[in-house]
Amino acid sequence: MKKTIFLVSFTLLLVSVGSVAQVKKELKGVLENINKFKKVSYKSTNFFCYPGDTVPMTGEKVNEFYLEYYMSLDTMVGAAYAKFDWSDTTKVLIGYDGNKQYKIDWEEYAFFKRDYYPNSFPFFARSRAVIEYVLNTNDSVVVDREVDSRFIAYHISIFNERIEFAARFPCYINEPGSNIGVVSEYTLWVNRKTWLPYKFKRTLPGNTIIDEISQLKNSTEDPGEFNMADYIPEDMKLWVGNSRDTLNFSDEILNTIVHNWHLCDINKQYHNLIEESSKVYMIGCTSLFCGPCKRSVPFLKELYSLYSNKDFSFVSLYKEEERKGVIHYVKDKDIRFDILLAPQSTFDSLKVSFTPTFIFLDEEKRVKRIIYGFTPGKTEAEIKETIKELL
């Protein structure tokens, strides 16, 4: 493969102005082509892996079908969309209409909607966000331009920042400690024939996301207004669990006794719930792929040091397929509190619809309270107050 590389830095000016101008001109052209779309559909093949690796953490790639509608005035995502499992494109899983995100649970035959921005993003909306950032940022950025007869790959390195393009605007992630030396890496592959992106890669410390689309169908004609009601059966139940307008099936288990489990930790040692003898026991249902979950870790480490196991203790539950990633994460973050690996059936028995979810049990293993999500400061206070009330 013929490979030509131009280093482009908008803040360090490592190369000539002409090279910078060339990259900007090309990316503006890509952006203009994306913005011509009114409606697109495509197959998305995506997965998480370790930085420098191409093997999915969960052992398999995810195949999904997307309908994506361009919305220039939407400041959060820039698009409305519906996501389906590739194996059944008649049942929408997640959707966003420009006002609310929808999530559909076909087994429970129910859906929920919420006001805050989605946690799943379509390919072209995310590609658009990255290009707009590169063209307009004052951050320290270097662009590597790799040229092939079939594509041009733009390797984007952002220095001393953890940046996630989780919506139309970049999300600056402030984890404990300094971001000095951290590099956020993005690569966008552009087809030289269509001058459109078809593959996206994001690498942050800890994990990489790779997303490649195929079977693209696009329309520049006005498709009309996107309406999530077209994808939700009229008799499907709307679930509203609490003031956050979220689907909280976990509320069903309040005041019930949690069944004993026999779960393995990362060292392959088994643990039984019935053996836990604390007055208050907290189950944290979490995931490596959940930003709020990761933000809760420093607080959980603090909790671990504050209480004796006789009064209060807790465990974080990850899914079994995350084992390899969890081992790496625990070592990297020096986590000392208990972590167990659970099958999907355990999460289902706890009626957990999203992460993080914190479930509080008394000595009889009866569910006394459930806290959803994690907002630094607010959720920390809620958890501490709950422990105080139950002790």
Score class of each variant (00 low, 15 high):
Thr4Ile: 15
Ile5Ala: 13
Phe6Trp: 15
Val8Glu: 04
Phe10Val: 03
Thr11Gly: 12
Leu12Cys: 04
Val15Trp: 01
Ser16Gln: 14
Val17Glu: 14
Val20Gly: 07
Val23Ala: 08
Lys28Asn: 15
Val30Tyr: 09
Asn33Lys: 15
Asn35Glu: 15
Lys36Ala: 10
Lys39Val: 10
Asp53Asn: 10
Gly59Asn: 01
Gly59Met: 07
Asn63Phe: 05
Tyr70Leu: 08
Met71Tyr: 02
Met76Gly: 02
Tyr81Cys: 02
Ser87Ala: 11
Ser87Gln: 12
Asp88Pro: 05
Thr90Ala: 01
Ile104Val: 15
Trp106Glu: 07
Tyr109Leu: 07
Tyr109His: 10
Phe111Lys: 00
Lys113Tyr: 05
Phe124His: 05
Phe124Thr: 08
Phe124Ala: 08
Arg128Thr: 15
Glu132Gln: 14
Leu135Val: 12
Thr137Ile: 13
Asp139Met: 10
Ser140Glu: 12
Val142Asp: 06
Val143Gln: 05
Val143Asn: 06
Val147Met: 08
Ser149Trp: 07
Phe151Lys: 13
Ala153Lys: 14
Phe159Ala: 11
Arg162Asp: 09
Arg162Lys: 12
Glu164Asp: 12
Ala166Ser: 14
Arg168Met: 04
Tyr172Asp: 12
Pro176Gly: 07
Val190Gly: 00
Asn191Pro: 03
Arg192Tyr: 04
Lys193Gln: 12
Tyr198Asn: 06
Gly206Tyr: 11
Ile209Trp: 10
Ile210Gly: 01
Ile213Pro: 00
Ile213Lys: 00
Ser214Glu: 09
Ser214Phe: 07
Glu221Ser: 13
Asp222Met: 01
Glu225Arg: 05
Asp230Tyr: 06
Asp230Lys: 08
Asp230Asn: 14
Tyr231Arg: 06
Pro233Ser: 09
Glu234Arg: 05
Asp235Gly: 01
Leu247Thr: 02
Asp251Phe: 09
Asn255Pro: 04
Asn260Pro: 04
Trp261Leu: 10
His262Asn: 15
Ile266Pro: 04
Ile266Asn: 00
Gln269Cys: 13
His271Glu: 09
Ser278Gly: 08
Ser278Gln: 03
Gly291Gln: 10
Cys293Asp: 06
Arg295Gln: 14
Glu302Pro: 01
Tyr304Arg: 02
Ser305Met: 11
Tyr307Asp: 02
Asn309Thr: 13
Tyr318Met: 02
Lys319Leu: 13
Glu321Trp: 11
Lys324Leu: 15
Val326Asn: 04
Lys333Phe: 07
Asp334Arg: 10
Ile335Asp: 03
Asp338Asn: 13
Gln344Leu: 12
Val352Leu: 05
Pro356Tyr: 01
Thr357Arg: 03
Ile359Phe: 10
Phe360Ala: 04
Lys365Gly: 01
Lys368Ala: 02
Lys368Phe: 02
Gly373Met: 02
Pro376Ile: 11
Pro376Ala: 08
Lys378Val: 14
Glu380Pro: 02
Thr386Val: 08
